[in-house]
């Protein structure tokens, strides 16, 4: 028992537990903001107003068409450029330039674009008959949306959005490759890299970091699966089963 606890593998699991919290923090801080933004952007893209539709379309295209790595660098350097003129005089430079704020901010901008594309796709496949039936019943536009379009859209988009959340969690690795590391605030890749530089044991440290990502991804997946079940509880047997496939959606 003692020998197992002293083994390098278990030691690594213990060392990387705290860094894993940083990855989780970045994901958990971005999803609650990214989700409503994604829905709004999807509705914007489907809007009848040309300007709103064009703007949302352009935003989604730009953020899906460029690497997150560049987006991080770009926003960080933009904030640095604004620092002397605006951030410092307003006294918000400490917050805005902090990776714990800027990281989730860029992740939100990125994930809302990917999420919007998913929700837009779902919006297009909402059964037309149900919407028409609701209008025929005399429901207003808002109540049609609230009781027909929205639940259908969420249900249809959920499997793909689950994959997006897992991908977002993986994307949190990029935060500390692009933004400065403050004190001991290190994430999994950062800490694994540091451990690697001590003893050059790439197989051990990177495998343990990979294990953390794998286990946490499965956890996110399982939690999203529970939500999926709830969203589809009225469709006994008919619902498409959710699959661990963060495949070629993103």
């Amino acid at each position: 028992m003692e020998a197992i606890l002293q083994s390098a593998f278990v030691q690594d699991i213990a060392t990387l537990a705290r860094p894993a919290l940083f990855n989780l923090y970045f994901a958990l801080a971005s999803i609650p903001v990214g989700f409503p933004l994604a829905v709004l952007l999807a509705l914007g893209k489907a809007s009848r107003f040309k300007i709103i539709s064009r703007l949302s379309r352009g935003y989604i295209y730009a953020f899906r068409g460029s690497p997150l790595f560049i987006q991080f660098f770009m926003f960080y350097s933009m904030m640095l450029a604004l620092n002397q003129a605006y951030l410092k005089p307003w006294g918000i430079d400490g917050v805005v330039l902090h990776p714990l704020f800027l990281g989730p901010m860029v992740l939100v901008l990125n994930t809302s674009a990917y999420g919007a594309e998913i929700f837009y796709g779902a919006l297009k496949t909402v059964p037309k008959g149900e919407v028409e039936a609701a209008s025929a019943m005399g429901m207003g536009r808002w109540s049609v949306f609230r009781s027909v379009t929205w639940p259908n859209m969420l249900r249809l988009a959920w499997p793909a959005y689950t994959n997006e959340m897992v991908f977002l969690f993986h994307a949190t690795t990029l935060v500390y490759f692009t933004l400065p590391v403050v004190n001991e605030q290190k994430d999994l890749m950062n800490k694994a890299g540091e451990l690697f530089e001590r003893d050059y044991n790439v197989f051990l440290h990177f495998s343990v970091a990979a294990l953390y990502f794998l286990v946490l991804s499965i956890l996110i997946f399982w939690l999203a699966g529970l939500v999926h079940k709830r969203l589809n509880q009225h469709l006994t047997g008919r619902a498409e089963k959710i699959r661990f496939k963060p495949g070629y959606i993103r």
Partner: peptide
């Protein structure tokens, strides 16, 4: 490969 971030692999393979 899908369960682990791509950055991890891109750094891991050359080092390994």
């Amino acid at each position: 490969v899908r369960g682990v971030p791509d950055v991890l692999f891109i750094l891991f393979f050359p080092l390994a």
